[in-house]
């Protein structure tokens, strides 16, 4: 049996480097993921991350860091620890079953070329 969605913290990779890393300070500002809508009508897209003490600051920082060249009209920020992700080890179980369901795609159906507006 596989676990479908296991909670992973961003940057949580099980075992850590063998003793070469300095100990982490627990007082680091939290990490935030930044999503930007580049223009009206488009989805927000993940652009990167940054550190901020709170959400207001994260949005301002995102504005200063990721929209310096007019890249956006709207910003979302999410604290990285709140992002839940699928486990790459489960990729086969999760996504391969979609492979043989090609009838979900419009190109699966053979229709006469003369047929318009469909």
């Amino acid at each position: 049996m596989i676990t479908l969605f296991r909670k992973f913290l961003y940057g949580d990779y099980g075992e850590i480097e063998g003793g070469t890393l300095a100990t982490s300070s627990s007082r680091e500002w939290p990490l935030w993921e930044v999503f930007i809508r580049s223009k009206q009508g488009l989805d927000h897209k993940h652009v990167g991350s940054l550190h901020a003490a709170d959400a207001a600051m994260a949005i301002e920082n995102a504005r200063d860091v990721y929209t310096r060249r007019m890249e956006g009209v709207s910003i979302w920020v999410v604290e990285s620890k709140n992002i839940h992700a699928s486990n790459p080890d489960d990729a086969n179980a999760l996504y391969d079953p979609a492979n043989d369901k090609i009838y979900r795609h419009p190109t699966f159906y053979q229709l006469p070329d003369e047929l318009k507006y469909m």
Partner: peptide, 12 residues
Amino acid sequence: SAAETLGITRDE
């Protein structure tokens, strides 16, 4: 940020 995805913090 890219390095942080590898499991090291910026403080470190």
